[in-house]
C-alpha cells in the first residue's frame, strides 16, 4: 500500500490538473487543450489555456501542496492532530498585510501590492511570534502564535470597520475569502520561489518528526536537534504558507485535513506523512478550484476559500469526535 501511495497520488494530481485546464466558463476538449499547449498560443483556446488556466493550475498545486505539507509538519512537531499552518500567525499576518494594501489603496494602483504586503505581514507576525517565544519550548511558541494571530485579526476587523467605502470593504472581504480568480503568471513568479524554499525546509524535518513521536526529551537523546527542527518548521511555514496566503488569501482546513487523509496509509509515521500530505493538499485545492469555477449559485461564483471551508468544517467536526473517541 505504502509503496503505491505516492505514485497514485501523483497520477491523481496530474489528472485533476488536466481537468482544471479544461474546466471553466469556457469548456475545452482535451484535443483543444493539447493543441493550445503544444503549438498555438494565439487563438482563443490558446489564450485561455496559457494566460488564464495554466497559472491558476500551477498556483493551486503549489498552494495546496505547501498547505498540506506545512500542516503535516506542524502536527508532527507539536504532536497534536489538530495543529494547522495558521497556528503561528502566518495566515493572519498575511491577511493583515494584504488588507493594509487594499485599505490604503496601494492595491488599486499596483496589482502585486496585496501579495507583496501579504508576504511582509506573514514574515513580520511570525518573526514577532518567534521573538516572543524565544528560549521557551513548543507551548510558548503556540501561545505566542495565537496572541500574534489575534492581534492581526483585530487589525483586519478594524480595517473592515473603518473602510472608506463599500467597495473597499467588499474588496477586503473577497480577499479574505480566498480565491485564485484572475491570478496571472506574475503571481506565480511572486509566490513560487517562497513556496519552493519553504517546502524544501519543511521536507528536511521528516526524520526529526519521526523521532519526535517519542517526545522532545527522547528525540533529543536520539541525536535530533529539536530546536533546529523547530526553526526549520517555523521558517519553512512562514516562507511557504506566507507566500501562498499572500497570493490566494486565506485558505483554511487544507493544512488540517490533508495529513489526516493519508496518515493511516503510512502507518501513522509523522515523517512519512509529509510527501503524501503535500500531494493530497495539491489535489484538494486543484479540485476545489475547479468546483469554485464551475459551481455558480444565483450568478455568484463560490470563492475557493469558502468552498473549502464548507467541505472542511464538517470534516473537522468529524475529526474532533474521532480523536476524542481514540483518546478516551
Amino acid at each position: 500500500m505504502t509503496r503505491w501511495l505516492v505514485p497514485m497520488l501523483v497520477s491523481c494530481l496530474l489528472a485533476s490538473a488536466f481537468a482544471s485546464v479544461l474546466a471553466g466558463s469556457v469548456w475545452l476538449t482535451p484535443r483543444e487543450a493539447f493543441q493550445a499547449l503544444a503549438f498555438d498560443h494565439a487563438d482563443l483556446a490558446g489564450q485561455i489555456v496559457t494566460q488564464i488556466r495554466l497559472p491558476r493550475v500551477v498556483l493551486s498545486m503549489a498552494i495546496g501542496g505547501i498547505l498540506g505539507l506545512s500542516g503535516a509538519v506542524m502536527q508532527g512537531l507539536l504532536r497534536n492532530p489538530l495543529a494547522d499552518p495558521g497556528l503561528l500567525g502566518v495566515s493572519a499576518g498575511a491577511s493583515l498585510g494584504a488588507v493594509i494594501a487594499i485599505y490604503f489603496g496601494f492595491a488599486a494602483s499596483f496589482t502585486l501590492a496585496a501579495p507583496l504586503f501579504g508576504l511582509t505581514g506573514a514574515f513580520v507576525t511570525t518573526g514577532i511570534a518567534f521573538i516572543l517565544a524565544r528560549g521557551g519550548g513548543t507551548l510558548s511558541l503556540i501561545l505566542a502564535g495565537a496572541a500574534v494571530s489575534s492581534i492581526a485579526s483585530a487589525g483586519v476587523s478594524l480595517a473592515l470597520n473603518l473602510s472608506p467605502n463599500p467597495y473597499a470593504a467588499y474588496e477586503i472581504m473577497t480577499w479574505l475569502m480566498g480565491s485564485l480568480a484572475d491570478r496571472s503568471w506574475d503571481h506565480v513568479r511572486l509566490a513560487t520561489p517562497f513556496i519552493l524554499a519553504g517546502g524544501t525546509m519543511l521536507l528536511l524535518t521528516g526524520r526529526a518528526l519521526d523521532a519526535l513521536a517519542l517526545g522532545e526529551a527522547q528525540a533529543e537523546s536520539l541525536g535530533i536537534a529539536v530546536s533546529r527542527t523547530r526553526m526549520l518548521a517555523l521558517i519553512g511555514t512562514a516562507l511557504g504558507v506566507g507566500g501562498a496566503t499572500a497570493v490566494s488569501g486565506t485558505i483554511g482546513f487544507v493544512g488540517l485535513i490533508a495529513p489526516h487523509l493519508v496518515r493511516p496509509l503510512v502507518a501513522h509515521r509523522p515523517g512519512k506523512v509529509l510527501i503524501p500530505a503535500m500531494l493530497v493538499g495539491a489535489v484538494l485545492v486543484t479540485l476545489a478550484d475547479i468546483a469554485s469555477r464551475t459551481l455558480v449559485f444565483r450568478g455568484m461564483p463560490l470563492n475557493l476559500g469558502v468552498f473549502i471551508s464548507l467541505i472542511g468544517a464538517p470534516f473537522f467536526l468529524w475529526l474532533v469526535l474521532h480523536v476524542r473517541r481514540r483518546t478516551a
Binding site: R79, A213, L214, G215, A217, Q218, R263, A267, H268, R269, P270, R326
Partner: peptide, 10 residues
C-alpha cells in the same frame, strides 16, 4: 525519561 510515551498510533 519519566513516563515516556508515544503520541501517534505507531
Amino acid at each position: 525519561p519519566q513516563r515516556a510515551g508515544v503520541d501517534w498510533p505507531i
